[in-house]
Simulated assay, not measured.
Amino acid sequence: MTDPAPPTVWARPRPEPRRRAPGVDRYVAAALAVADAEGLAAVSMRRVAGDVASGTATLYRYIANRDELVDLMVDAVRGEEPLPEPTRDWRTDLAAFATALRATLMRHPWLAGELAGRPSLGPNSLRRSESALRAAVALTPDITLASQALGTVHSYVLGSVATQQAARRAEQRTGLTEEQWQRSVGPYISEVLAAGEHPMLARRVHEGEEVDPDVEFAFGLDCVLDGLAARLPRPSGTS
């Protein structure tokens, strides 16, 4: 018989900080600073304890392991953006959910990988999920379809942000800005396109405009919402 799983971090009472000892919030803030600057892989219990001038044993008194620490980090950043005021217009409310999620992901590049796995069950995450589901239910009363619609929007945001963050990582890796990289590959691209084998790519390079990431995100989000509106039955009397 296997041992029962330990209670989740959210179900276990948290001890009060001893005099002059850092509390959970300070440990989480220190971990967030490391993750935002260096990536989630750089976060360790020893590193976080050291950054707040605390013994590792003291940290373990409040947080059982690194997985719990990451759970606390995720929920902390999910509480940064205020919950949007519901308008009862599903499109407006889902767009507000998507925009707030994107802002959080852009501030914390490590977060997308965590949100793509198991759902976060912290209080901030649950409040945000409840709010988003209420918006989706205004589109369709079927809770399963509403959940799928919300998942579609969620996946679009994750994918859009991942593309933008990949460009940032490439810039950090090569040391070249996007403009510098384009200049460096310009002669090669010009030679390839001059051969005439890629007319659509040639049009994109010579005629197309560079679109602001915010504008590009809004365009894609509109397409997703248009698709949901066309596919899902809505309650009678709604638009």
Rank of each mutant, 00 (worst) to 15 (best):
G113S: 09
R88M: 15
R168N: 09
R66V: 02
W110D: 02
P141E: 06
V34P: 04
R78F: 07
R203Y: 10
P17A: 01
A96R: 10
V77E: 01
D71P: 05
A167S: 12
G55K: 13
A116L: 09
S160G: 15
I143T: 14
R12D: 01
S236G: 15
T104Q: 01
G208R: 09
A167W: 08
G55D: 13
L193N: 02
P86D: 04
L158I: 09
R78A: 10
T92N: 11
P235C: 08
Y188F: 13
R26F: 04
R173V: 15
L139E: 00
A112M: 06
I189V: 15
R47P: 00
R20F: 07
P233Y: 09
D212M: 07
A149I: 00
W181E: 13
A162V: 14
A53G: 15
D226N: 13
D71K: 10
I189N: 09
L105T: 03
L32P: 06
R61N: 10
L201M: 13
L150S: 04
D3I: 05
R14L: 14
W110A: 02
S54Q: 04
A229S: 12
E16I: 07
A98W: 04
P17M: 03
D36E: 12
A146P: 08
T174G: 12
A42V: 08
Y27G: 08
E207F: 09
T104A: 03
T104D: 01
L83K: 06
T56K: 12
E178F: 10
P119G: 00
T144G: 14
P6L: 02
L83G: 00
Q165Y: 07
W110I: 05
A218G: 01
I143C: 10
G55W: 06
R231P: 05
F219W: 13
M106T: 13
A170E: 11
E85Q: 14
V153W: 01
L193P: 03
R88H: 15
A167K: 11
L83H: 05
D212K: 10
R102Y: 03
A103D: 04
A229K: 11
V52F: 03
R169C: 11
A5V: 00
R128V: 06
W90R: 10
A146R: 10
E68T: 14
L72W: 00
A29T: 11
T56L: 07
D67Y: 02
L228C: 07
V24C: 08
V185L: 03
L139C: 03
V211Y: 03
E178P: 11
A230T: 05
E80D: 12
R107V: 05
A162S: 15
G151N: 10
Q180D: 11
E178K: 13
T99A: 12
A33H: 04
R118C: 07
R14V: 15
L40P: 00
G122E: 06
